[in-house]
C-alpha cells in the first residue's frame, strides 16, 4: 500500500493546486481587463486622504514640495475628467505626505546622530 503525506496527497493535490492557480490567473486577468474606470468620487476620496496626510506633515512643519505638486497634478487631471490619472496622482501625494511624516517623526531622535560633538 502506498503512503502519502496526510495533508498533501501529491498526485491529487498537485493537479488541484495547478487548477486553482490557472483559475485564479484567469479570474485576475478578466478582472484586470474589465476594471472600472475611476470616478470623481474615487478621486475625491483619494485627494481627501492625501490632504489629510499633508496637513499632518504641516503640523509637524515638514511638508514636501513634491506632495503639493502631486496634489496639483491630481486636481488638474480631475478638472479635465481624467479620474484614473487624478486618483493615481492623489495616491502618490498621499504616499509622499506619509513619507514626510515618517521623516519628521524619526528625525526627532535621529538628528542627534549627525551632531558634531
Amino acid at each position: 500500500m502506498r503512503h502519502f503525506p496526510r495533508h498533501f496527497p501529491r498526485h491529487v493535490s498537485t493537479t488541484n493546486v495547478m487548477k486553482k492557480i490557472v483559475f485564479a490567473t484567469m479570474v485576475a486577468t478578466v478582472c484586470a481587463g474589465s476594471a472600472r474606470a475611476a470616478s470623481e468620487a474615487d478621486y475625491l476620496a483619494a485627494a481627501a486622504a492625501a490632504e489629510s496626510a499633508n496637513k499632518e506633515a504641516g503640523r509637524l512643519r515638514n511638508q514636501w514640495t513634491v506632495t503639493q505638486a502631486a496634489l496639483n497634478a491630481a486636481k488638474k487631471a480631475a478638472e479635465s475628467g481624467n479620474f484614473d490619472s487624478a486618483v493615481k496622482s492623489a495616491q502618490e501625494a498621499e504616499a509622499l505626505a506619509k513619507a514626510s511624516i515618517v521623516q519628521a517623526t524619526s528625525e526627532m531622535q535621529r538628528w542627534k546622530d549627525l551632531e558634531i560633538r
Partner: peptide
C-alpha cells in the same frame, strides 16, 4: 541637523 525634504538632506548634510 534635522533631515528634511524628499532629498532627505539636513543643513549639515551639505555644510558639515
Amino acid at each position: 541637523y534635522t533631515r528634511r525634504g524628499q532629498l532627505n538632506f539636513s543643513c549639515a548634510s551639505c555644510h558639515v
